[in-house]
Simulated assay, not measured.
Amino acid sequence: MSNMAAVTDAEFESQVLKSEKPVLVDFWAEWCGPCRQVSPILDELSGEHGDKITFLKMNVDENPVTPSSYRVTGIPTINVYQGGEVVKSIVGARPKAAILKELDDFLA
């Protein structure tokens, strides 16, 4: 379904919080229609901007600990982490142009 690598609760700290570059995490679930709309957009962005920002996805049904600790209550939620902190949060499906605008600071 996606070219983006998956991250689990167990890997979250090492792959996301300790990353040298910004990391975008797409919190999603199989049954979520809007998540399926956003997924190909994020795949595309990952191909275009993967050198500047790491793109990962986390299935909230399989990994409940991390979404809960970051108060992810609605999906899709796209969080950008930098230096171990959430620096941007996008909730809900958005078109590519809107997501790109939100990510401007990290892609410049």
Rank of each mutant, 00 (worst) to 15 (best):
E48Q: 14
V86W: 10
V60S: 00
K101F: 09
L56H: 02
A98T: 13
L103N: 08
K96T: 12
S39M: 15
A93S: 15
E48A: 14
K21T: 10
D9M: 02
L45S: 03
V80R: 02
T66Q: 11
A10C: 05
A93M: 12
S39Q: 13
V7M: 09
E44Q: 14
E44T: 14
V91N: 06
V23G: 03
P34Q: 07
S2N: 07
G92Y: 07
L42A: 03
V25R: 06
C35L: 01
D104M: 12
E44A: 12
S68Q: 14
W31T: 06
K52D: 08
D43E: 01
Q15D: 09
G74I: 10
A108S: 14
F55M: 06
D105N: 12
A108F: 08
N59Y: 03
A97G: 08
P40Q: 06
K88Y: 01
S14L: 00
V91K: 03
N79C: 14
C32L: 04
P22Y: 05
P64H: 11
S46T: 00
E11T: 06
T73N: 11
A6F: 07
P95L: 13
P95F: 13
K21I: 12
T77E: 03
N79H: 13
D51E: 14
Q37C: 06
L17E: 12
P22V: 02
H49W: 11
K21H: 06
S68T: 13
E85W: 00
G74P: 01
I78C: 11
L56V: 01
M1Y: 09
H49D: 00
V25G: 08
F55E: 03
E85G: 00
V65S: 14
P67C: 08
F55P: 00
D26S: 09
D9R: 06
Q82S: 12
S19I: 05
F12E: 03
A93H: 13
F12S: 07
K101S: 15
R71S: 14
A6D: 15
G47L: 02
I41A: 04
P67E: 13
F12C: 08
L56T: 00
G74V: 11
N79P: 05
Q37N: 13
D105A: 15
V38N: 04
S2G: 06
V25D: 09
Y70V: 06
E11I: 00
L103I: 11
Y81N: 10
G92E: 04
T73V: 12
S89D: 03
S69H: 10
E48S: 12
Y70S: 07
F27I: 08
A10Q: 14
V72H: 02
K18S: 07
V38Q: 09
V80D: 07
L45V: 07
P22D: 04
V80N: 08
F12V: 04
